[in-house]
């Protein structure tokens, strides 16, 4: 007889705990539901509808996705552009950030100054940076003047299909590498001196020490930087919105910009939601892939 009583008592206790927990969680939970969960669920529903801004919504099942993948000629071009941007941006960002981090940590003096200086573009904001680069890369701008001075042929940076994406990547890397640089600097400083000295005593030269000892030791920060940069680069929007609006001839049109145009310019909310979910799965798949590689390449010191 005493057992069920106990059980009931336990249940009641848990219930009351739950209520209290809910109260404490409420502020965060409400925000999460209102701004994350419900909008996400809602966009999934919208992606199954033909949902113009004005007029009737009609349920079309997977129609938006079918149209996106089979009929929309622009979509594949945009997919390609996005991937080109992600690969180029992540590669240059990580390499430059790493190079800068190694150089700055090796400095005896003024490393704080350089650290701040290279981080500064992050503080300016991407829109202003892009505006500045539009001037620098304009026909009479700094870069083209220099190219002409040395006798080269000056490209039409943002206006030509062959260089527009290059220009967008240049702006983005200049603006964004400072963040990874700071992560790498802290990674480099975190590598134990004793391990490096041990390598030196064993006869490793500087290059060997860097690639065989330092780099593996800081692989967690490299992994973190790469994953974050990949995720953020899939969402590239501001640079292209300000500089090219996706032009010339959609050469710099990327997924989020296409999503924006569909939603706000062409008023196809269902279609835009479908694009949002495609973007979500792109990021999901790439991140899952990177996470899997983590076991092979990333060294967590015990």
């Amino acid at each position: 007889m005493s057992v069920p009583e106990k059980k009931a008592g336990f249940k009641r206790k848990r219930k009351s705990d739950f209520g209290v927990a809910l109260v404490f969680l409420a502020p965060n939970l409400i925000g999460f539901l209102m701004f994350t969960m419900i909008p996400m669920a809602f966009s999934l529903v919208m992606s199954l509808y033909d949902w113009p801004l004005t007029g009737e919504h009609t349920f079309i099942g997977l129609g938006n996705f079918v149209k996106l993948f089979t009929e929309d000629v622009l979509f594949w071009k945009i997919m390609k552009n996005t991937l080109v941007y992600v690969v180029a941006y992540v590669a240059f960002n990580v390499l430059i950030a790493m190079g800068m981090a190694v150089w700055i940590t090796s400095l005896k003096k003024a490393n704080e100054f350089f650290r701040s200086a290279f981080f500064l573009p992050m503080m300016i904001g991407i829109v202003s940076s892009t505006m500045i680069f539009k001037w620098i890369l304009s026909d009479a701008g700094l870069v083209n003047s220099l190219i002409r001075f040395f006798g080269g042929e000056a490209p039409n940076w943002f206006g030509s299909t062959s260089t527009a994406m290059v220009a967008v990547v240049i702006v983005s890397v200049w603006q964004g590498f400072g963040y990874n640089m700071v992560i790498f600097i802290s990674g480099l400083l975190g590598v134990s001196q004793s391990v490096q000295e041990a390598a030196k005593i064993d006869g490793a030269n500087a290059v060997q020490t860097f690639f065989r000892v330092t780099l593996p030791c800081m692989s967690p920060s490299i992994f973190f930087a790469v994953v974050m940069t990949v995720i953020s680069s899939f969402q590239v929007f501001d640079q292209t919105f300000v500089s090219t609006m996706g032009g010339p001839n959609n050469e710099t049109n990327t997924l989020v910009l296409y999503l924006y145009n569909n939603a706000f310019k062409y008023q196809r909310l269902g279609y835009a939601s479908a694009i949002a979910w495609v973007l979500f799965f792109c990021i999901l798949i790439v991140t899952a892939f990177l996470m899997k590689q983590q076991k092979r390449f990333v060294n967590y010191e015990s």
């Binding site: 701004f35 994350t36 909008p39 996400m40 809602f42 966009s43 919208m46 801004l53 995720i231 953020s232 969402q235 989020v256 999503l259 924006y260 939603a263 706000f264 909310l269 835009a272 939601s273 949002a276 973007l279 979500f280 990021i283 999901l284 991140t287």
Partner: peptide
């Protein structure tokens, strides 16, 4: 990841 994705989606939903 979720938060990152929502940046994109919230734009749609702000409407």
């Amino acid at each position: 990841k979720v938060a990152a994705f929502l940046m994109a989606m919230l734009m749609t939903l702000s409407l």
